[in-house]
């Protein structure tokens, strides 16, 4: 095996960084070299001590790392631009999908990544000092139903219920899901619900807090609320056992 073929532990989305790629500036971690790659050199030490500004990447001057993501003020965006964007996302997934089931899975996958990121961001915004990690099923559900929903969709979800049939099933109910507000499903699309995207967000957030779950969106219209959607959260069986072992 040549040097170039060294297995990278985790840089899946990157073009591979090989063992020969030592960062020239002395900054930047290279997983195939380990801590050797970003060790303190006389030059980098000098930069750190003397607060020199330097441009490492084309975006260094205006990087996300210098921005404050911790502001409490909610930045609102226009509902119509969000709707157009989501419309395009549905359109794009629809074009690529083989059927209704596939379309829902793809929308779910889009939301999944949003959930993973938003979870950490919201916990950061809550302030590490005042907030706490959610370690119980009911607490994480309350968090998602309340704080989480409010910071993404501007309001808390309408209801949070426990299923009567199964001990590992919970439901979050939203009367008017934000993203599918302006979407009407054609008759021949059966029970497609574009809130599968929102289900994906919930699933991503739950999975990364190690509450592994399957989340699906189902339309459940009642009188006066035609868009009412039930997000059915089905936790792994083991999770309920884990919980009873830990907290009883």
């Amino acid at each position: 095996m040549s040097n170039d073929n060294i297995i990278l532990p985790s840089a899946a989305s990157l073009s591979t960084l090989s063992i020969a790629d030592n960062p020239k500036s002395g900054f930047g971690y290279n997983p195939s070299l380990g801590p050797l790659s970003n060790t303190i050199t006389p030059e980098s030490s000098n930069i750190l001590l003397n607060r020199k500004t330097l441009s490492l990447t084309p975006t260094s001057g205006n990087s996300i790392y210098d921005k404050n993501v911790n502001n409490k003020k909610i930045n609102e965006i226009n509902l119509s631009s969000l709707s157009f964007l989501f419309c395009e996302a549905v359109n794009w997934t629809h074009r690529n999908s083989k059927g209704i089931q596939d379309l829902e899975t793809r929308l779910n996958g889009l939301g999944y990544q949003v959930g993973q990121r938003f979870l950490e961001l919201i916990k950061l915004r809550e302030g590490v000092k005042s907030s706490k990690r959610e370690i119980k099923i009911i607490d994480i559900l309350r968090f998602i139903h309340g704080t989480f929903w409010k910071s993404i969709f501007g309001k808390t979800a309408n209801e949070l219920e426990k299923s009567q049939d199964a001990s590992n099933e919970y439901m979050i109910i939203d009367n008017v899901p934000l993203v599918s507000k302006f979407i009407s499903i054609p008759k021949d699309y059966g029970n497609l619900n574009c809130s599968a995207f929102m289900a994906g967000i919930i699933e991503g957030a739950l999975d990364s807090s190690s509450f592994h779950a399957n989340v699906t969106a189902h339309s459940a219209p009642i009188d006066g609320v035609p868009l009412r959607t039930v997000f059915l959260i089905k936790f792994d069986e083991q999770l309920v056992i884990r919980e009873s072992l830990r907290f009883n």
């Binding site: 990278l8 532990p9 985790s10 840089a11 899946a12 989305s13 990157l14 960084l17 960062p23 500036s25 900054f27 930047g28 971690y29 290279n30 997983p31 970003n38 330097l54 490492l56 990447t57 975006t59 260094s60 990087s63 790392y65």
Partner: peptide, 10 residues
């Protein structure tokens, strides 16, 4: 993913 950004490192 590994964080390889030099900006992060700095």
């Amino acid at each position: 993913d590994a964080i390889v950004s030099p900006d992060f490192d700095l």
